[in-house]
Structure formats: C-alpha cells, structure tokens
Simulated scan of single mutants.
Amino acid sequence: MSASTLGSTGLRSEAQTWQDGKRYLWPLALVVPILPYVAYGLWHRFDNALAWYLTPFLVYVIVPLGDWLIGEDAGNPPAEREAQLQSAWYYRVLTFLYLPLQFGSLVLGAWAWSQPHVNLPSRIGMIISVGIVTGIAINTAHELGHKREELERWFSKIALAPSGYGHFYVEHNRGHHVRVATPEDPASARMGESFYRFWPRTVWGSLRSAWELETKKHRLRKRSPWTLRNDVLNAWLMTVVVFAALTLWFGLGVLPFLLVQMVFGFSLLEIVNYLEHYGLLRQRTAAGRYEKVEPVHSWNSDRLSTNVFLYQLQRHSDHHAYPNRRYQVLRSFDEAPQLPAGYATMIVVALFPPLWRRVMDPRVLAHYEGDVSRANLTPKLRAKHEPKKTG
C-alpha cells in the first residue's frame, strides 16, 4: 500500500471519527429568548427593576467575558462530514425553537408593560430585554431565510415580524449579497463613517432597495406590486397583525413598548451590519465589474462564546461565499480579516466612534497593505485620497 493511500485512508478514518465539539453548546442560542421569562418571574416576585436587565447583562457582559476567557475556535468540520451535518435535523430544530420563545417573550413583555404602577427603570429594562430578543431573532431569520425549504423561508418572515423588518428577507438575499462590500450597498459601512451616520443610510437604503427589487420582480411578471404575493408587503402585514392583536389585547398603552423594542431590535441588526464589512471593498476587474465575493470581503471572528449564541454568524466570509450553507458547517478562513474581539464586544465599541476608528481604521489599512484607496471610503475620505489632477 502506498504512502498516499495510507494518508487518504487515515484522513477518511479521522473524518469518520470526528464529532461536533459544539453540538451540545448550540442550544445556548436559546438562552437569550428564555431570559425575559426569568426576568419576569424575578420582577414579579421581588418587584425589582434590575431583573429586567438580565438579558443585556448576558449579551453585553457575560458573552464578551466568555469570548476573552474561552478564546477562539478556528476548527472546521471535515469536508466528508459536511453533507451529514447539513441534513441533520437537530441543528434545524434549534433555529425553529427560537420563534415560539421569541413570540412568548414579546407577549410577556407586553403583559408586564400593561400592568399598573410599573416604574421607569422597569419599563426601560423591558424594552431592552425584549428588544435584544427581537434583534437576535433577525439573525435567526437570516439563517432560515437563506434556505431553499419553503417552511424555513416562511419561518424567516415570521421571525422578522416583531422587528417590523420584513423587507430584510428581500433586501438581504437579493440586494446585500449581490452588492456586498461596494459603495452601492446600503448595508456595507464605509471607512470613516460612524455608526450614527451609517444607521439612517442603511435603514432607509435597505427599505428602498427591497421595495425596488420586489417591484421589479412583479413588473417583469406583468403584474402590480400591490399584491400579497409581494414578499415585502406580506412580511409587513405580519407585523401589523401581531401589533394589532397585542394592542387589542393589552390596550393602546402597549404601543410605545412595541414600537421602541422594534427600533431597538432592528438597530441591533444594523450595528452588526456596520461591523461586518466596515471599510472592505471589492475591486473592479478589467471588465469594469466588481470581483467575486471572497473571504477577504467580510470581517470574521472565531470567538467561541459569541458564535454559539449567534448560530455562528461571525463566520461571515463563508456565509457570503456559500449562502446556503447551514450554520453548523460554516468554515473559518485564514485569509479572512479578523476582528479584535467578538461581535458582542465590537457592537459596544461601535457606539463610540473615536474608539471604533482607533481600533478598526488601522486594521483596514493593514488589510490593504497601507493603500487606503483600495478601501471602501466615505465620499469625503475618497475625495481626500484621490490623486490630484494636474493642469
């Protein structure tokens, strides 16, 4: 038997014995939508507003601490095991379970909000707690919305209802994935752009793009876009139905809670969008087209703690290269630029623009070997670094 045969036999044997070391960690993604139930129980029992801050404490303190203490996991599943992992229902069910927990926490939050004599710190905590669940549900919708199965696609739109961000289903798949890491993409942040400038650009730009994409699709089929077959309209209708039902149940006084948690939720998505492609740019080919999306066009993080809570969203390069891959088989690439910390930490850094630029701008420059003209820049920075024309 040759050495090459022995080597390939050894690799097959290793692939056959390989086990998903994170298999029993993936259910941790369900802790976030469970915590509002715990918070309500503690608040009801002890009448202490601090109970409502359990969820943000987990997301903004415990998970980042876990990132630093546990560190990174850059391991990839063997290629021979990917098909088996892709088809395993265990991983799929974990995404499905998020939805009933998400909607239950929304109803519970609305119920708590409607109770008499609720103080302001409690109300703020309710909004943040449920808003985090709503925001992370967009990540669940993201995982489901990329799949070919009709059931998962509908679940994706249902998960988006509490955030009022049903158009994400259209824009992310057919807009962002086409234009990612280009100036034309409203969800790709430019170097020199603060989150506070990015937010209105991406919120309104994504909504407008989704409507244009869906309108074009229906007009090509020679029908009006004003139909329930329009995926923007039927997704928004789900939000209207959910909010109307809760308002009829708990009264008009619950509307501020529903609307503010909605904005908090989709803002959490947009701050993640902000950091995922900040300053990264696909270059033009000789034909004038943008180059193919590669691992170098997304910021990644292999921090284990955040990855298990976010269905491995941080392995973003592989997701953009192969959108249909399920979270459990997403791979880490050596060539992908790495964030200095996990998403849970970086979304806090992004709230402080001077700190963000101090941390991230040098990394963008290093990624492009000091050639700032190769980065995705704000128009102001682009004009500053363009070669001066001589007469």
Rank of each mutant, 00 (worst) to 15 (best):
W299V: 10
R92V: 03
D371A: 03
G135Y: 06
M191Q: 12
G71E: 02
V260K: 08
I34S: 14
A159I: 01
L339Q: 15
Y368M: 13
V130Q: 03
A141N: 11
S122C: 09
Y290C: 07
D302K: 12
T247E: 11
K380N: 11
R382H: 07
A244Y: 07
G109L: 05
T215S: 08
P354F: 10
L258V: 08
D318V: 01
L233H: 03
N139F: 05
Y311V: 05
R45C: 04
Q102M: 14
A88V: 06
Q19C: 02
Y311A: 13
L151K: 14
G175H: 01
I347A: 10
Y40I: 01
A235M: 03
F96N: 02
I128V: 00
L377S: 02
L304N: 06
Q84C: 03
R45E: 06
A321G: 10
Q84I: 09
Q283Y: 10
A137W: 00
I132Q: 00
Q102I: 04
P256Q: 07
A51Q: 05
L106R: 09
D67E: 13
R221D: 07
Q314K: 04
R197F: 10
M191L: 15
V32S: 07
G288H: 13
W356H: 14
R208P: 00
L99T: 04
A49M: 10
F57K: 08
A245K: 05
A159E: 05
I62S: 10
T306Y: 08
Q102G: 12
S332N: 12
